[in-house]
Design a protein around this nucleic acid. Sequence first.
RNA 1: GGAGGCGUGUCCGAGUGGUUUAUGGAAAUGGUUUCGAAAACCAUCGGCCCGAAAGGGCCUCGUAGGUUCGAAUCCUACCGCCUCCGCCA
Length: 427
Amino acid sequence: MLDINFIRENLEKVKKAVKDKKLEVDLDKLLKLDGERRKLTTDVDELRAKKNEAAKKKDIEAGKKIKSELNELEKKLHEVEKQWQDLMYQIPNVPVEGVPEGDASNNKILRKEGEPTKFEFTPKDHVELGEILDIIDIPRAAKVSGTRFGYLKNEGVLLEFALVQLAIETLRKEKFIPIIPPALLKKEITDGLGYWHGKIDDEHTANENYYYLPTDNLYLIGTGEHVIVSMHSDEVLDEKELPKKYVAFSPCFRREAGSYGQDTKGIFRVHQFDKVEMVAFVKPEDDETERGKMLSIAEDLMKRLGLPYQVVQLASGDLSFPGAETKDIETWIPSQGKFRETHSISTTTDFQARRLNIKYEIPPVFSNGSIASQPLKGYVHILNGTCFAIGRMIIAILENFQREDGSVKIPEVLQKYTGFSEITPKK
RNA sequence: GGAGGCGUGUCCGAGUGGUUUAUGGAAAUGGUUUCGAAAACCAUCGGCCCGAAAGGGCCUCGUAGGUUCGAAUCCUACCGCCUCCGCCA
């Protein structure tokens, strides 16, 4: 959610953000409603003051009269507030300075690291490799769970755990708190995150991107970010503990509705995968620095694995609803002959913090040396970034490090965790 | 899953329909005092609205509704915690 005062003062900027993200929100109506809301608030306050006075005097007659007037006015206020909030929740975050304008075709490649892997033989894709190495079983997953699922087996499992250990060990050194979160979250929490955007859900509508359990009114998380960011909702964080950073290991569930034709082969796009995710709560002035750190941590891991990748800055129209800036890491996928998204590092600025009510105390010393009697409060900025989307990392490792006989070399940095240096065909 | 109990501010804790503008402590922050500290004392110590400010008003007792002239207090639903039983890794 944006600050209504910000919207008032930056109307054109907000209108542009709405348009860029291909949304439609009637901002003029919002401003009109806001005027009404403030007028009604004042009126209701005045009437309540009268009510309180009558109650104090035990003036029952006057009280009754005020009560009926107040009922009507409060009803009106509620209606206006509901519409106002409805609209407020439909407004996406505004990009930070420097984000290229336009749709995804304006995404900007910032840099490339490593060369696309070349082979002296015809490389296999991860589906075939997974099968001959006996580490990925898609047909049986289809039988049991349907399309877009997979079983990971044997060395595949050890490879996953190795990636997780490498990630956690690296991030612990960077003061990230390791955490394994719940994989289900309450519906009302989802409103605060901004991915379930659009109207505030009616009783029986659920967002099509995520799995919903109506019997318990819970969603399956789409990413660890959902439950890590919400952890501190309605809290005031101590300025001294910022930046507060978490590294979460969790399953992620995606319905992938509307992606029917895309990435149907293998486990590139699945309904369930595990991910190591970074989340940081930072002071606004540290946003950019911490964002940069997150990206460089993720990049450094890619370099240590020896995977070729490129860094892409998303254009304004390609940003998520709560996102103000996103940089993706795209890893070379030989079977597709393309760099594909494996990481995404974003700031939501204070957008999520505002919805989830996450603040921090600003120490009462001002820059000019004067001291306030009490600490002030401000909204934190919330950053999130992929460390490893494990399924896609396994695909990248299998495909980039395959040999002609179908065996796969394990990156050295992982070998101390896997206990083996290659995976060899079983069939 | 069954039965019972509980939820008050940063924390502890009083309050069971009307001098409660939420008693009283503690912690914290600013100040007075001090060579400095401790102690003591004074002030501040939730959110929103109007206002340049001074100030004024409203809301806030887990959350949302309801009853009443008047609700922390009564009613309903939901959320959370505790105890016992059952079940279970």
